[in-house]
Design a protein around this nucleic acid. Structure first.
Lengths: 330, 330
DNA sequence: TTGAAAGCGTTACCAC
DNA sequence: GTGGTAACGCTTTCAA
């Protein structure tokens, strides 16, 4: 800025104001300063700005995985809803691990973000303490935590499964199996498992067969391998409820390979409305949970709170998943 | 730090050194300072550190899309190879758009990253200028640019297609079609198109039918819709070369839906070794380009250069894609 | 509308 | 081993 000021024959202060479109600076002066800045290839130093203003402009975000179309959609929507603001996403990947999440939160907080967005509502005690003492707005998304830290924008993973079980029961399915990652590695997936078991009980179906595919993430391969391994127990079922669409697709490939027809011999359901569920043949009955809406709402909400437009009151947005009936359930 | 110094009865300088494990500070003093810091709930300010040291600890990364298993793999490998360092990824999504890339580069540079990693080798002039004047190491990955800015870790998208065309020619295929996004929205995809056309010519096959699916990203849906729309021209082909595995899968679903058998009536190939290519039935012949290796190498290389272990000399790593022959090509 | 001064939290450098 | 001083690039505050 000093250089620009010298070149333009004004004070550094005027340069600062000109580049900020401060209003209190002559239009001609501003244009001149702009031109000089461009000529010198000046790039504004956010580091200094963050330091001075004690405001980094960072929105910290933790995601379990980046290689997941659902989280990617939320990420994208979040980025887009932030495009017109001066907020920038700073993200950490937790690999579905609360200890790793704690490390990421620590690392992210060191950058002094203006707010923190956590995917999921399950955290270590230390994580909660760290966030508390950071005194910044905290958002938990993709979940409805029992003890929210701050704001919540999500849906009940457990209740959502009621929609699926209802639909299966109505189409005459009686003996359900649930396919998902091991309980301790995927809190949201485990909620779905519990929700399925609960709903099946309430509707008087047979006890749900619990089929665990090992640690998260649950992938197409893990769905496929599980079916190959557990085919004997699976033959006794008439519906396979999967924790996500990729798992459902993998399971379906294995079932067909083993000679079972879908939905004739067995129904299959997914979760998340991934592209594969619409494109595959047969297309997969699934749940759209509004991954995009979560991102958009969170971005808007964070921006409003940080810019003082809306109050700090804890926002609790509960979204309602939508059942998409397709070919795998007849 | 001032507060800690006062409380501990030492100078701020000693506090700084004690917290840094500087070596030049008495072990007892350090312990005492540590205790006081913990008691006061002190959190180190990376913002100030970055400002003072003119070294942010950020590694800036641009990606065309986050919702792409290939780029996600590179991202993950990069993150992991950085885990033991004090470098942190800061990323921007370009949506396959060089103008958007320019905006992202500007935004990222404002954070004063220690190095910049660009996916792809096609940029606006302004982007090149910005990077030049930033005087930080620049990496271009996933491509072999004609005029590299700095370091390169990638492969020739054009040459890679030679492997596919060779394989198709050897299996007796003569009339190829190429399915990809429009030329101006996906530089890497366009390289693949040109590579296919060139290889087909060299091997004396019929002229390649160019089938464009609109702007990137190329998805399962776009592959499916293209086949539905262009089925009349496609019936004259005996192989469909697709710009990526998801496109190939979408195309395959449409072809089967229209009564064509794969690979009997027509062969289909993908690109990228996405999970779907291994799991789908029939499994898809594809190319593994070492997405993970690109990430690992880039992370290691960046860390070595930034920590002064290796020289600044421009690194050019050319990886060799690997052909994976599966069921869609007979 | 513009300018001068002070300071944000940290550390490099130089004294002791 | 420890302390003092200055400086990083910017903006808030006050004065002109």
């Amino acid at each position: 800025m000093r250089d620009i000021a010298k070149e333009a024959g004004v004070s550094p202060m005027t340069v600062s104001r000109a580049l900020k479109s401060d209003g209190s600076v002559n239009a001609k002066t501003r244009q001149m300063v702009q031109d000089v800045a461009d000529k010198l290839g000046y790039v504004y130093d956010t580091t200094a700005q963050a330091f001075r203003a004690q405001r980094s402009g960072f929105l910290a975000l933790t995601l379990p995985s980046i290689n997941n179309a659902n989280f990617a959609t939320t990420h994208k929507a979040l980025t887009e809803s932030l495009a017109e603001t001066d907020l920038q996403l700073l993200q950490g990947i937790t690999n579905y691990d609360v200890v790793r999440e704690e490390q990421m939160v620590r690392q992210l907080l060191a950058r002094r973000p203006d707010a923190m967005i956590l995917t999921g509502g399950t955290h270590t005690d230390t994580t909660r303490r760290l966030l508390e003492s950071a005194s910044i707005p905290v958002f938990e998304i993709w979940d409805i935590p029992e003890a929210p830290i701050g704001h919540v924008i999500g849906f009940s993973n457990s209740d959502a499964m009621g929609l699926i079980v209802d639909h299966l029961a109505q189409s005459g399915r009686q003996r359900l199996g649930f396919v998902g990652a091991s309980a301790d590695t995927d809190a949201r997936g485990h909620e779905r498992r519990l929700g399925t078991i609960k709903a099946a009980r309430e509707r008087g179906l047979a006890e749900v067969l619990d089929l665990q595919i090992g640690p998260a993430p649950a992938t197409m391969s893990s769905g496929l391998e599980l079916v190959m391994r557990e085919i004997d127990r699976i033959r006794g079922l008439d519906a396979l409820v999967c924790v996500s669409d990729p798992v459902a697709f993998g399971a379906m490939m294995a079932l067909e390979c083993l000679g079972l027809t879908i939905p004739g011999d067995i129904a299959v359901t997914g979760f998340g409305n991934f592209e594969i569920s619409r494109i595959s043949r047969p297309s997969i009955t699934t749940l759209d949970v509004g991954a995009q809406e979560i991102g958009t709402l969170t971005g808007r909400c964070a921006n409003e709170i940080l810019s003082g437009i809306s109050a700090q009151d804890a926002v609790i947005e509960t979204l309602t998943p939508r059942l998409l009936v397709r070919k795998t359930t007849g």
